[in-house]
Nucleic acid binder design. Structure first.
Lengths: 182, 182
DNA sequence: ACCTGAACACCGTTCAAGT
DNA sequence: ACCTGAACACCGTTCAAGT
């Protein structure tokens, strides 16, 4: 499948080094062949992003379902978000590529769906008293920013944590600190 | 100055649409002329990143100095970080471009310096009792992730906040929620 | 010291033509 | 329906040559 090969290529060469021609070369077809399957480069990336939102949604939902209790559900969901980013950095990069929403407005609806799921966890925490009253939307935005910040710094290697074990320990610590002790 | 023109071009066309040849065109020189001032495209971007870290450091330091008290210093610093990102998105993008550290290891020392300044604010909060005991390095990483997450989502337009006034209100709310009520 | 123009190897995209 | 090869307009980078 062309989409899988694209993900592998982004993972290897980085978002900027990804090239349609190199992709075709690896697939053993002419450089014009991908245009029979995707309108252009952006549409292929949009498909990768869409796949990413799907996978992320599944993992976050599954983690939240483990509970027990609203607070743990939220904490587990946050950790699942970060672990997804670490395991699929190419997907996350494409998913939050600036300008992608302008090119593919359909992605916005998908991203909003993920947001709504997170918000339902926040609302549950408000009801159980684990989160204070207030705008659920704003609290959801803050929660998302927390998860996203840990994810971004983790995959950009900016945290200066030497070993993968250190990195994982920190991610667990960060999410516990942020969500576990609301 | 070529560097300023580069920032303007990134701001306009995005990180991916930025091109040395277009830059030369706007400067009214031949496409080979920039190579008399910068070794290659990456070195120009590294200079932009370095400039960004310098500006960010100044603003965060100035904001932290306003105090009063360690908790407010940290909160002000966080807000200054996010406001810098919103005002200079091109700089922030380049500063956290994955792979840039591999190309220019000198940037890592500069980024670490910023990290150390943030850590000194964290330590002050620990001493004043505004933050619990524990690894100052890990707490600094978490604080950074918070700021960075709000900054990233703000400049990528992912927060679905319609007006700039809404966006600013949220940023202030987020930083208060995160740092103001430790 | 600084710039230019030609050159090379790349890239995204299109399109007539093939099976 | 799917692929190809040539073509076009771009790009980063180099280099001999100019002032």
């Amino acid at each position: 499948m062309l989409r899988e090969a694209a993900v592998a290529l982004i993972e290897e060469k980085g978002r900027a080094g990804f090239t349609l021609r190199e992709l075709a070369r690896r697939a053993g077809v002419s450089h014009a062949a991908p245009y029979r399957h995707f309108e252009d480069r952006d549409e292929l990336l949009a498909c990768v992003a869409e796949e990413g939102f799907g996978m992320l949604g599944e993992r976050v939902t599954a983690a939240a379902a483990l509970g027990p209790g609203p607070r743990d559900a939220l904490s587990n969901a946050g950790l699942a978000y970060v672990e997804f980013a670490v395991e699929h950095p190419a997907h996350l990069r494409v998913m939050f590529d600036p300008g992608l929403y302008r090119i593919r407005p359909s992605l916005m609806a998908i991203a909003e769906h993920s947001f709504d799921r997170l918000q339902s966890l926040i609302v549950a925490c408000q009801r159980s008293g684990d989160l204070p009253e207030g705008s659920a939307r704003d609290q959801t935005r803050v929660a998302w920013a927390l998860m996203h910040g840990v994810a971004e710094l983790s995959i950009s290697g900016s945290l200066a944590l030497p070993t993968p074990a250190d990195q994982q320990r920190f991610r667990a610590y960060a999410l516990r600190a942020l969500f576990g002790e609301l």
